[in-house]
């Protein structure tokens, strides 16, 4: 029961704060790679949020969601890097 308390009162609020911080960089970022780095970190934070949510609700299916979100984020980042290198 203490784990659920920690997740819902410490982990999820602080991770929401982290998403807000990366959103600041996503909006302000001067160059395109800055925004992609911010999106990449946001994807990693989303993995952590899904894992914490799986712990909170005792639903292990969210772990599969976390792995799939990580896969999609990685493919998106690699596709962006390839596109940027070919464009110049």
């Amino acid at each position: 029961m203490i784990l659920q308390t920690i997740v819902s009162w410490i982990v999820l609020p602080l991770l929401s704060l982290t998403v807000a911080l990366t959103l600041v960089r996503l909006v302000r970022g001067p160059s395109l790679p800055d925004r992609v780095v911010a999106l990449d970190v946001m994807g990693t934070v989303a993995i952590a949020i899904f894992a914490a949510y799986a712990l909170l609700n005792a639903q292990p299916a969210f772990l599969d969601v976390a792995i799939v979100v990580g896969l999609i984020g990685f493919i998106g980042t690699v596709a962006f890097a390839y596109y940027t290198q070919r464009r110049i």
Binding site: S31, L32, P33, V36, V37, D40, T44, I47, A51, L63, A66, I67, G70, L71, G73, F74, T77, V78, F80, A81, Y82, T84, Q85, R87, I88
Partner: peptide, 23 residues
Amino acid sequence: GVLFLFLTTPVAAHMIGRAAYMI
């Protein structure tokens, strides 16, 4: 999930850094 994350994050960071330096 941990293994996948530790395999993919450095590769992604390397590719973004390379692209950022090139442009």
